[in-house]
Design a protein around this nucleic acid. Structure first.
Lengths: 233, 233
DNA sequence: CCTCTTGTTTCATTAAATGAAATGTGGTTC
DNA sequence: GAACCACATTTCATTTAATGAAACAAGAGG
């Protein structure tokens, strides 16, 4: 999940994956022109890659000639869920946490300059803050989760040291004026950083005091499944 | 979704995608040795591909050195779901159908010698027959859905002509001794083949008469969302 | 009918992928 | 603990496959 170079990628496979990465929830349908502009690659090069990507079902060509992700991704995602045992542990913790605090709880990892939602509670489907599993948000868009992910995966992120020392981050109205959230880092038992668990709710209901309390509850529940909010044992 | 060649693929991108295709629900974790044996590619070649696949999050390297699908697939799957409007239409039809008949209804497409479940009803979660969205089964394993998919995507499949002319297939105890199911083809309004809708239940409850009736109900509901069980208008 | 935009094919040039062999690493056996 | 084995990883001269500029096709719109 190390972010790849940012300017001109080389190597056919890497270029193919770069093309996939251009499809986002904001722009899920792209045509050759767009892909060329966004990637800086030659149209002929892209066309070749698209052909095989489509043949294998990772993209599909729409009637109007544009491209969008294909069903092969569904297949791979299902295997990922099945395999990733820590996703399953996280899911358990999330259920306990959202039961205990009555707010939306979700877990994000960093992947390629974005945060991917790996799990969320499916109880508190608040229409004001509803995020699907697999949904992605650019890290640059900010928010508690993004800042924490940056602090733990990017040595020269803003407030790097401060966030790390506190091992949490509270944001108010950063991405949505009415929301507040607290994010805590999640570490594997052996100290490797996994991602961030975020609790979100209406800002009016949640003062800093409450959010801090929630983060402590989260830490307790994570500990129950062998996960930790601190790198060192 | 055209199945790629069957013997030795060339081209780096295609080789990378081949590697991904080796991960299945039956074998979700593979090591270099396995990938080499299964693909026939040189270990050095594979290792290079794995490195970039891991860097972009499509695979992840486990502590013991083996590989499994990574979170980037979740991201792509989420976009696919959002985009694929026909999946949404199918979902609508599935709800209506399973409401009407009280049995498990699911929709499969062919992808690379396997059938992928794109949608299923989430009402009749019968423990005897429960398939997740994204789940895959090798086409060679048989079953009503597999036979129908083969008949419509593989010109030299067994009983090709017969199945096509009937536009349905009933199976009894083929994959599970106690189950019976009927599969019907699904076509886009313009006549392009999409996949197969399958109704499954306990064999004891479902005689051929009933299954045929179900398939007619399915055809009606599909028609309501602009889909068809026959290629020609 | 002409023009602009986007997609597709071609082909000589060049760079990137290849894979056999050598080396590294961890685990198992005696 | 030495010798062995299985598997992972790196190296590097060779060769193959990717590249992209340009030419061509296909619409869309005026």
């Amino acid at each position: 999940m190390t972010p790849p170079r940012d300017l001109p990628p080389t190597g056919v496979l890497e270029r193919g994956l770069l093309l996939l990465s251009l499809f986002t929830q904001q722009t899920p349908v792209l045509q050759l022109k767009d892909l060329s502009a966004a990637s800086g690659l030659d149209k002929a090069t892209i066309l070749r890659a698209l052909k095989t990507l489509v043949a294998w079902g990772y993209l599909e060509k729409r009637p109007d000639g544009s491209y969008s992700p294909g069903p092969a991704n569904l297949r791979m995602a299902a295997i990922y869920r099945q395999t990733s045992n820590f996703v399953r542990r996280i899911e358990g913790a999330i259920v306990s946490i959202s039961d205990a605090i009555g707010q939306t709880t979700s877990f994000f990892v960093r992947s390629n300059g974005e945060r991917v939602c790996l799990a969320r509670d499916n109880v508190h489907r608040d229409f004001r803050y509803f995020i699907e599993v697999g949904a992605t948000v650019p890290l640059a868009d900010g928010g508690a989760a993004a800042r924490l992910l940056l602090a733990y995966t990017d040595p020269d992120s803003p407030a790097h040291a401060k966030i790390r020392s506190e091992a949490r981050y509270i944001s108010r109205g950063e991405r949505n004026r009415h929301l507040a959230s607290v994010a805590v880092p999640v570490f594997e038992g052996d100290g490797t950083f996994l991602g961030t668990l975020t609790i979100t709710g209406m800002a009016a209901d949640l003062d800093d005091e409450t959010l801090l309390r929630f983060s402590r509850i989260a830490a307790d529940e994570l500990a129950r499944v062998g996960l930790s909010v601190a790198a060192s044992r």
